[in-house]
Design a protein around this nucleic acid. Structure first.
Lengths: 239, 239
DNA sequence: CTTGACCCACTAGTATGCAAGAGGTAGGAT
DNA sequence: ATCCTACCTCTTGCATACTAGTGGGTCAAG
């Protein structure tokens, strides 16, 4: 029986270009497929099957899977198989803890930045994003809203001048995005999220480290509130 | 000419055991060699040479090097070579930022933990470590003192129940340990470090989130003060 | 002496084949 | 019917071989 492909892709080029290491491209493909729930938690993904699909040997696929296991997206069981990680409440709360620690530090640093020009630049950039989010909210465009949310947090992080901080935040956020993509609960929450974003920016503008930190903390705690319902709706994806 | 081995190891077993993946063991060996400055910043480490030394093929060595490049310990230049990362002020300050964000969050969570039994357990464990550090200080045993310092921070992190938090802190701390191992500046600083550790524990015992966070922050900022002198002493290891 | 083209040695990236362990299954003994 | 065993298939871990790109060194031309 011809097995169904694990990941959808343009067959003509198998999605890979020649100007970049195959392993790195495959890493991105699989990661995106996991975040978008195209690959489901608990699903087995064999090195051989993926290699055939991408039209490469097992080696680059294997290297991609090793990196995915480092960030907790897959679990490699020797001689048994490689599986997409299931959700666990512990791991999600851990991701939230790390993310909150970093994002609170980001806004604290920004709010206390003595160079006011930098603060204003950040505030401007974020206010622009918030304005776009308002548009997305009135259009009820959940996908656009979520992308802008990503943008908001990444923009804040970019002002630390520490690239790894931004990438850590992105990585921890990705775990949550996976959960969120189980169902689009966001609509009806637009208003709350928007006002929380605004509160963060207002505190940064005022130069208040405490208020910035508190506002970010409140925002993140609220975002993770959907965890109250999702595990019951999709117990099969949780350990 | 017979090349000199890159890493010293017991030749009888080449340091590897059979009950654990070779790649993972090699990763640990090379990481430790880099932290201890046995492998110097800027030094080239070829996959082939390491493979011969460990008595394995290039494959597991390569997988270990990929992971080391993920944590910023080596840099892989395609078709050119793999090099031990040099220090850069930016990267070290970034590591400090991340570490401070996480450790401040750790002590904050601990200080506000409603379960007083947990708090006391943590305080007890840390006070025991501080006592040992006092002994190490009077013995002027810098190595023991530093190991206990590691222990202190890891113990605090362990009480979050989030294992990845502890491992992140350890990883970020490792970058600093590399720098520190350039020279043993620690003696003469024992007293300051000890009193800072004590202040952190005291604030946790008192259940004060603010004071715990502030004490941790002060401690970490102070630890990184040796950066004022080291780059001038060893400019060849900095980019 | 300077400069340029070529060659060669060495690198990491990828392909392929083999080894060894885990787990399901069929079949026989009880 | 139940349990045990042998085996067969699939997995990942590792070894080996090949590809292609980089940089240095050589040597000849100017």
């Amino acid at each position: 029986m011809a097995k169904q492909p694990l990941i959808s892709m343009r067959p003509e080029s198998k999605g890979l270009s020649y100007d970049r290491p195959a392993a790195s491209q495959i890493f991105g493909f699989i990661r995106d497929a996991i975040i978008s729930m195209e690959l489901l938690p608990g699903q087995m993904i064999s090195e051989t099957a993926l290699a055939q699909q991408f039209g490469v040997s097992r080696t680059p696929v294997r290297e991609a899977l090793i990196q995915l296991s480092n960030i907790g997206f897959v679990e490699v069981l020797p001689q048994r198989g490689t599986y997409v990680s299931k959700f666990s409440m512990d791991k999600i709360l851990e991701a939230r803890f790390i993310r909150e620690a970093l994002e609170v530090a980001v806004v604290t640093q920004l709010a206390t930045n003595p160079d006011e020009a930098v603060r204003l630049e950040a505030v401007d950039a974020c206010e622009k994003i918030i304005a776009d989010q308002k548009t997305a909210a009135t259009d009820d465009d959940a996908l656009a809203f979520q992308n802008l949310d990503d943008n908001f947090h990444q923009t804040l992080a970019s002002f630390t001048q520490y690239p790894r901080v931004a990438s850590f935040i992105e990585a921890e956020k990705a775990h949550m995005d996976r959960v969120r993509n189980l169902s689009l609960h966001v609509s009806g929450q637009y208003k709350r999220i928007l006002s929380q974003h605004s509160a963060i920016i207002k505190a940064i503008k005022a130069g208040s480290a405490d208020k910035s930190a508190a506002a970010m903390s409140v925002h993140l705690k609220d975002v993770y509130n959907i965890l109250e319902v999702i595990p019951q709706e999709h117990p099969e994806y949780f350990v």
